[in-house]
Design a protein around this nucleic acid. Structure first.
Lengths: 196, 196
DNA sequence: TAGGCAACCGGAACCTCGCTCCGGAAAGCG
DNA sequence: CGCTTTCCGGAGCGAGGTTCCGGTTGCCTA
């Protein structure tokens, strides 16, 4: 949305070469550190991994949320685009909803600590929260509406609420073999079903 | 379990009077600060509220978890004891389970930030996590077993998993009018129902 | 009642971490 | 080649958790 292409095609001259290089380096370093230590790893660690000063991080990504969004943007987009695709390819809207939620859970569970940081109360992460919501709530709404229209689920559940519920259930899903977030999410989706 | 009565009746002489007084004061102060600022309020705030030094807090409650447990012990006990009672007084085990979970949700939702801190990954809060689990998982197991035996729910859900799921759903339930944890927990419990 | 010894108290000090700020370096341009 | 603009690095500040030790005070004994 703002990074290395400035609206037009190739390279806007608004950024110096070293700056662009550093941004790239930072993204890679952050991704590596996130995998190793979770998304709440100390800023200094990321700076060290990238071989730059902390100032450089804050210049390119004013808040940690910006950095996280930049690192995971591709995957979130993929998830958003999967919604309509599943709706088109699945037997029923309810099945599509189930698969889509599954995919979202997969994403969250494999990103150490991401789900925990998605909470709105987590001050300083509003950008992150907003991005996820903006991008995914409409998709979820579409799926929910379709499933409601087909009569498979009882209506009245807000997409926002569902997304937050699923996100919450994914917190701490790694690092605890006794806890299976996927299982509980399945139960939640099952509970949506029209009792008929 | 260790505090002011040492197994027997009144006052074990193992503690000096001022120490006992301070412990009491701290409990009150902590409760007040927890209500005002959540369970993650700065230690110094609690010390100030109690009018003691921070050292005194750490002496009586080595970890924050110990303090939280001490503050909420009564209510957790009440919740644990409500399990069998509900089982005896409700129409069906499933109804008892629903009511019990409701009560637990009420408890969590009204304690600002408690649910968030119940995560096992939250290092330094292991004591808290362990206490809740030790006390409540057996109760939950009993309810779950009864409901499974009566054929109302499909078996196979671990009480630990359910407890964590409910706990997770309660995270951030205050401070966000768009999110209704109770609603989602209901859905989860509904999903437990035998599809028949 | 006075003396002495633990137990206990308070808060200064230290550490980690997020974030800011500015002197210096380097890129791009004429 | 030198000037201007942009960018870089990391020292430094504030906030919060935790430790540690000199001074204080309850409590027991003589």
């Amino acid at each position: 949305m703002q990074a290395r292409e400035d609206g037009a095609g190739q390279a806007a001259r608004s950024k110096r070469a070293d700056a662009r290089r550093n941004e790239e380096t930072l993204l890679d370093a952050a991704a590596a550190v996130f995998v190793a230590s979770g998304v709440e790893a100390p800023v200094r660690d990321i700076a060290a991994e990238a071989g730059v000063g902390v100032g450089t991080i804050y210049r390119h990504f004013p808040t940690r949320a910006d950095l996280i969004v930049a690192v995971y943007r591709h995957q979130v987009e993929a998830c958003a685009e999967a919604g309509p695709a599943l709706l088109a390819s699945s037997a029923t809207p309810y099945a599509a909803l189930g698969q889509w939620v599954d995919q979202f859970v997969d994403f969250l569970v494999t990103k150490h600590g991401l789900a925990a940081v998605l909470q709105p109360e987590n001050t300083g992460f509003d950008t992150l929260h907003a991005y996820f919501l903006d991008r995914l709530v409409p998709v979820c709404t579409q799926l929910l509406d379709a499933a409601a229209a087909s009569g498979e689920i009882r209506p009245g559940l807000d997409a926002y609420e569902l997304m937050r519920g699923v996100g919450n259930l994914c917190i701490g899903a790694d690092s605890d073999p006794r806890y299976n977030a996927r299982h509980l999410v399945e139960l939640l989706i099952a509970g949506l079903r029209r009792p008929d």
